[in-house]
Design a protein around this nucleic acid. Structure first.
Lengths: 343, 343
DNA sequence: AGCCCGACTGGGAGCGCTCCCAGGTGTCGC
DNA sequence: GCGACACCTGGGAGCGCTCCCAGTCGGGCT
């Protein structure tokens, strides 16, 4: 141990090769299990790598391969909202899992509109990641437009409001889901069916509201004045519910655009002395596994599986990584209705 | 545009330099705002970079600088638990914010014990990140030990059970917090004070249980048989509460080791017809901003601020990045008691 | 006038890896 | 017996960047 022993120095491929008594090339081949390496050489290299505690330098590797093995998951929200929104949390978890399953590392990005957009773009461009999964940007969000110029593959989760062409999208059938919900209520004999809609600057809530409206009209019912917009939060749902109840004391059903808002609505209805579902039937959207079945009463909810969405997105991204020229396509995933006691 | 136009080619520093009519070195200096660049040259380079849509190749940069600008946040949990645990979610958010504030990118890692540990280690070693913040591993978790061998700076959040020396730790005063809670109950005249403890394979819950026990003894009360262990989940808390209630119908207070479990306990107490705080006073731990004040009645809770913890961790990590030889130190953050209606 | 020093510039080396190419060996087929 | 062709190996080049070093230039000093 001389004074400049440098035992902190990380071994390089060259070191491993020297230790194993082969060339750098052979060591590389052995480590990347290439064919064309003799069993003996492979054995020696692997042993050397183990003994020296070698782990390849990713920077060097991706400099030449132009692959990083990482994929960005971009949530177009300030990170502070994450807690409030179980859907986003589910998406994040699914993203982690699905990417891990294809051997990729997830890098989470919260792209707050209020912040510097260029920070996000710079990161995505900087070669930190091979591609990006971008979730449900707001209508006003400049991100999707900026991303079109990006030179990395991008798959959107949910309609990128405003941009419908030239991008890869995996979305749920939001309008169809709303239709399922409302048809279910109509079939149960409900006639005054209100809705608590989500923020109308996002694609999904817009489609859900449209589905509600069209289905009512198809059933010969009048949607006028029966919609209230809220912000996907619990308290937002509660407030919207009481506004609706004030305007229409005779309301006998409500379609709520998310589980979280439905929890708030339930609370308001309970406070107003309404029995559920006898007086007011409630159907929500998301069918969040921990939320919907746990309510009192358990929520009837339009079932969508974030994992399935993310899976499709990852699959598309992987194809895109193989073949950049893949033609943009929109995938619309079906949803179903999970009927429980609230309706 | 020849057949091999290659307009998809990303411009390199060399291209920018050529375009600006300077050398690669000067371009680099201008972009990294080094001194010793003339205003004119800097201007030309910046303009060229803008015009060509240049963004530096991170891989190449970190290959030579040995810095990536990214920091791993390691949660020693399967990603599926994230939703259930508001504390972890808060930690994640704080991590993102605090790291962004020092210009670093967070890379989230869920290190499930059941999975391959080497995947995590390989990633951390691979030069993807400059350092890691590791949160509250379980006692049985081999991660901390593996990390000691790691050649990147690591700061632990919460006691790494089993390892107390030679690592950087930022923890809360769990035992002191429990003491605050129990002393508060004793001062209010409670005499049969139970506890719902967290998993005893983690540092924090162990310390909280110890604090409860010692404080009872100090007050001349008998802790025997008044503790029940649960798993930090809502239902776990509910079950533990009913076990406790069955054994000790005369219980007049309970110290619960987390807000989430307290919510479950509240539910059980309510179901058993106990009034809170008249019959049973409840004090919990975490003082989660969205949970504790929102309960009915609002929870008295030991306040700890994850953001503060993460801030201290990031600060330590940044120092470590500057000076690897920094002496390992343990920081214990104080906690306080937020008194509300539940006690 | 000579000299030094600070401001600025360009070229070369090299980070650690993968890929390509040139070669060496053994085996098979005609 | 000899080309063909697999299998296997090592060296060189080069990915795009930063850093070091040598150099040029001009102005203020002795």
């Amino acid at each position: 141990m001389g004074p400049r022993a440098g035992d902190e120095e990380r071994p390089t491929l060259e070191d491993v090769a020297a230790f194993a008594g082969v060339s750098r090339s052979t060591a590389s081949r052995a480590l990347n299990d290439d064919a064309y390496v003799s069993a003996a050489a492979r054995e020696k290299v692997l042993a050397a790598a183990r003994d020296l505690g070698y782990s390849p330098n990713q920077a060097a590797r991706s400099l030449v391969t132009r692959r990083t093995g990482a994929v960005a998951v971009v949530l177009s929200e300030p990170e502070s909202r994450l807690l409030d929104d179980p859907y986003r949390a589910a998406v994040m978890r699914a993203g982690y899992r699905e990417l891990a399953d294809v051997g990729r590392q997830m890098v989470l990005i919260f792209s707050d509109i209020r912040e510097d957009l260029s920070r996000t773009v710079r990161f995505l461009e900087g070669g930190h990641v091979d591609g990006a999964l971008v979730f449900a940007p707001h209508r006003a969000d400049p991100l999707p437009k900026a991303l079109r110029l990006l030179r990395i593959p991008v798959v959107f989760g949910g309609q990128a409001a405003g941009i419908r062409r030239g991008v890869h999208v995996v979305d749920f059938d939001n309008e169809g889901g709303a239709r399922l919900a409302v048809e279910h209520l109509v079939a149960a004999g409900r006639r005054r069916i209100g809705t608590i809609a989500g923020p109308q600057d996002q694609g999904a809530p817009i489609d859900r509201l449209a589905g509600w409206r069209k289905t009512l009209l198809d059933a010969g019912l009048d949607p006028a004045d029966l919609a209230e917009e809220a912000d996907f939060t619990l308290s937002g749902g509660a407030n919207a519910m009481s506004a609706l109840l004030t305007r229409h004391p005779d309301l006998d059903a409500v379609f709520v655009a998310s589980d979280m808002m439905a929890v708030g609505a339930l609370r308001t209805l309970d406070g107003a002395g309404r029995r559920i579902p006898e007086d007011v039937a409630v159907v929500s959207f998301d069918d969040n596994a921990t939320l919907a079945p746990a309510m009192d009463p358990p929520l009837t909810s339009v079932h969508q599986d974030p994992r399935e969405q993310v899976h499709a997105m990852v699959e598309t991204l992987m194809q895109l990584l193989d073949d950049q020229s893949l033609k943009p396509r929109q995938q619309i995933l079906p949803v179903s209705l999970a009927v429980r006691a609230s309706s």
